[in-house]
Structures are given as C-alpha cells and as structure tokens.
C-alpha cells in the first residue's frame, strides 16, 4: 500500500495522526498456513488481508491431507517487520487455522512456481523462442504452426526472466500459479 500524501498539519482536526508513524523498511515474506479445508476458509484469510490493509503478492491453496481435511495456503506478502508480525498473529486468530509458518525466517526453504507461456510467431522469432525455452528447460506442452505453449517451473524470478525474454518474441498469454513453498531438511 503506497503511503498517501498527507501534508504535515493537514490532519490536525482528526483524532488520529494520519501519517504512518512506523514507516520503515518493507520486507517480503512467504507464509505457509495450514487450515481446515472447510467452506469459507479462504474467504476468511483473504478478508483478513483486505480488511486490515495487508498486501498479497501471491497466494496458492489446495488440499494437502484428504483424510485430515487440511489445506495448505502459501501466501507471499510484503510489509514492515511489525506488519509481518501482526499478519502472522491475525492469521493465528482465525479459528480453522492450525499453524502459521514464516518460511522466510524459519530457516532455508524452497519456493517454486509453475507458469504457462503462450508465444505466437513465425520464422526467426519462433526458432529463437524455442531455443531460449530449451536454455530455461521449459517444456513445450502445446504447439501449432504459429504458436507454442511453454510450461516452466522455477522460482518467481526465473519465471519473470523468461517472460521478459519471450515478450519481444510474441508472448501473447501467461498464466502463473503463484508460489508453493516448503522448508528444507527434515
């Protein structure tokens, strides 16, 4: 959330000091949230972020334990250290939330995202797109005479880089899953 431009003194007839008193460094954190897979649980998590003005950069969710009815929500969020702590505490208050892990601070973790890239073109551009896809170890999952769909798994930064390279070569559509992440080791 970008800071609003409120001039010094402009809020003098408000009960609040409307300028953010804690403007600090913004950090990106990846949170893993284990929840009961019940109706409305995702709405509770998303509603918390929108209702309290927190950021969501990406969000993935799927059931990971069918018998135990547990789902895993992976959220990439941004904020000052105090805001990140508040996000975790607020997530912890939601009744169907069982565990909240901050993978960014709890030790090394792996983060992966899957992307599908549709690149349309003919001639040299088409050859070049295929060549770069091989360098990035992307798979061709669909092909016509004038288009490819590449599938690639990697860090969000790798997907960003691939998309940048494909853009001048005819990138016409792009779908990304958002980050899934796990802590390394046992």
């Amino acid at each position: 959330m970008a800071a609003l431009k409120i001039e010094q003194g402009a809020s003098s007839h408000s009960a609040y000091d409307l300028r953010d008193p804690n403007a600090q460094v913004i950090e990106s954190h990846t949170l893993a949230v284990l929840v009961d897979n019940e109706a409305g649980v995702l709405a509770r998590v998303i509603g918390l972020f929108s209702g309290r003005g927190f950021n969501i950069d990406s969000l993935t969710v799927a059931e990971v334990d069918h018998l135990g009815h547990r789902s895993r929500i992976t959220i990439v969020t941004r904020g000052t250290p105090a805001v990140i702590e508040q996000i975790k505490a607020q997530l912890g208050r939601i009744i169907p939330v069982h565990e909240v892990h901050d993978l960014t601070v709890e030790g090394p973790s792996v983060e992966r995202e899957l992307g599908l890239f549709k690149v349309s073109g003919k001639g040299d551009k088409r050859v070049e797109a295929l060549r770069i896809a091989e360098i990035f170890r992307a798979n061709v999952v669909d092909s016509t005479l004038e288009s490819f769909v590449f599938e690639m798994t990697g860090t969000p930064e790798k997907l960003d880089a691939f998309a940048e390279l494909m853009r001048p070569l005819g990138l016409s559509d792009l779908a990304r899953t958002g980050v899934a992440a796990l802590a390394r080791g046992i």
Partner: peptide
C-alpha cells in the same frame, strides 16, 4: 490472551 493485541499499536 490475544497475541495479535501485542505490538499492534505500541511496541
């Protein structure tokens, strides 16, 4: 009793 009440406004 609510950990989210701690460090929300005042350190």
């Amino acid at each position: 009793i609510d950990s989210s009440s701690i460090n929300k406004v005042i350190h």
